[in-house]
Write a protein that binds this DNA or RNA. Structure first.
Length: 216
DNA sequence: GTTGCGATTGGCT
DNA sequence: GCCAATCGCAACC
């Protein structure tokens, strides 16, 4: 993997709907405290923007969602359900709230470390399949929010090794608002992708009415 | 100051 | 398939 190049900040300066599918297939690297290199290939992402009711920055700018408004290439890590951390990368121009949630990845290196953190009996398939599992295995947490992933010594490194998997598009997982917007991107045929689940709180799509607005 | 709830997961029926 | 766990945030009083 020595030919893999780090993604420059400009790579993230585009709209979340462009960056999200492009991130599928990108390498995610993190160095464990003992020096072990942890490497995975992203298999699933979701896009979020300020205009999007499901986005944390939809209502207003707050200390919590500040990284989403900041310059692209920075991490936005938040806690959900009081238990899990979720990793996003800010995209779009500085001042505009956009981001891409990294939902799942296929583990490639450092499996023993990942397994130690996730449970020795965890199947390889489940090591990084899901946003909460991924952050647990990679030890990404709240202290990393705001970190510049394109800067020096970032907690997580993103690289392009030229892989260009086919990408499918569909509705996002678990969101209660804008549940039908097809802003989730997955690697076609990958086993390391979470199954689609609709939020129990999401209103059922109104059939044949104008209520079901779905931006492209 | 209080309350309701979520971009999830894992365990149990 | 159903449901509890668990807590920071933001809406509301």
């Amino acid at each position: 993997m020595s030919g893999a190049t780090r993604l420059p900040r400009a790579w993230f300066a585009h709209h979340a709907l462009e960056v999200a599918p492009a991130l599928v297939g990108v390498l995610l690297e993190r160095t464990a405290p003992d020096g072990t290199l942890l490497r995975a290939r992203i298999t699933e992402t979701e896009a979020y923007t300020e205009d999007d009711p499901a986005c944390h920055a939809h209502r207003r700018r707050t200390p919590r969602n500040e990284p989403l408004f900041g310059p692209p290439g920075h991490a936005y890590v938040y806690r959900t359900y009081g238990i899990h951390w979720c990793l996003n990368v800010a995209t779009g121009p500085d001042g505009e709230a956009q981001g891409v949630l990294v939902r799942a990845a296929e583990p490639l290196a450092g499996l023993a470390v990942l397994r130690a953190r996730r449970g020795q009996r965890t199947p390889d398939r489940d090591l990084l399949r899901g946003p909460g599992r991924l952050t647990q295995a990679l030890e990404v947490h709240g202290e990393h929010t705001g970190a510049d992933l394109c800067g020096q010594d970032p907690p997580v490194v993103l690289r392009d090794d030229g892989a260009r998997p086919a990408v499918a598009r569909g509705p996002r997982v678990g969101v209660s608002r804008a549940a039908d917007w097809p802003w989730r991107f997955t690697a076609v045929g990958s086993r390391f992708v979470s199954p689609y689940t609709r939020s129990p709180r999401a209103p059922r799509a109104a059939e044949g009415s104008a209520a079901g607005e779905q931006p492209s």
